[in-house]
């Protein structure tokens, strides 16, 4: 039992140290993305996560006793050897093992640049959120959004809510209609027209609040 564990640790930390490093980096990034409250810190976590993946790929491309994936002078398609034999020749199996795997490098090359572009996009979104709400802390932002939702509901006497589904809205409107019946003793026939009327202002109000989100502050 103890020896098995020792072999496991030996395999993990001596022969596969690259995987340990990438897993640790990946976990740091994952934890930052989940637990941190600040959007910028979340983005830093995302970058660390990305770096872990890049490290994983590049470390897989390593080959013992191999050189970088650029042809040595003796295999160079424009080298003296190629001229002597009248053009480059395909490499043999032994020669192939002397070059590192080019594929992970290619994949990560594009991933790095696209990662920078997406990071820039995410930072732009963060900046816009900060312009709109004055904070990039998740809990403060959520509190402000809740407040705004509540204040957009207040001006109307009836419970406007979010007007998500049709039957819900009509039932709410009916309820408000009955309330108004109790107060003003309006005729029953106006109920349905009231239901129709109340729907439109609700939508307008939510739209206005949406616009305010973008413009104000």
């Amino acid at each position: 039992m103890f020896e098995d564990g020792l072999i496991f640790l030996n395999e993990l930390f001596l022969e596969r140290l690259n995987y340990v490093i990438y897993v640790v980096l990946l976990l740091i990034g994952l934890h930052a993305m989940i637990a941190k409250n600040n959007f910028i810190k979340k983005l830093i976590g995302m970058s660390i996560f990305q770096t872990a993946i890049i490290l994983f790929y590049v470390s897989i491309g390593v080959k013992e006793g191999a050189t970088i994936p650029i042809y040595l002078p003796e295999h160079d398609p424009h080298g003296e050897q190629a001229y002597a034999t009248g053009g480059p020749e395909a490499l043999t199996v032994e020669q192939v093992t002397s070059y590192a795997n080019p594929l992970p490098h290619v994949l990560m090359l594009t991933a790095i640049v696209v990662g920078v572009a997406t990071l820039g996009l995410a930072l732009a979104l963060c900046q816009k959120i900060y312009q709109g709400y004055g904070t990039v802390e998740e809990d403060e932002l959520m509190a402000k959004l809740e407040k705004e939702d509540a204040s957009s509901r207040k001006p109307k006497t009836h419970p406007a809510g979010k007007s998500s589904s049709k039957p819900e809205v009509s039932s709410r409107a009916k309820r408000s209609g009955t309330n108004s019946v109790g107060k003003t003793t309006a005729p029953q026939a106006k109920k349905s027209s009231g239901a129709r009327k109340t729907k439109a202002p609700v939508k307008k109000a939510t739209r206005k609040s949406d616009q305010k989100k973008g413009d104000s502050k």
Binding site: P69, I70, Y71, H75, D76, P77, H78, A82, G87, P88, E89, A90, L91, T92, Q95, V96, Y99, N101, P102
Partner: peptide, 13 residues
């Protein structure tokens, strides 16, 4: 690795 030189004559794979 084996065919890049033959196919494209580019040394950098």
């Amino acid at each position: 690795i084996a065919k890049t030189g033959v196919d494209t004559e580019v040394p950098n794979m």
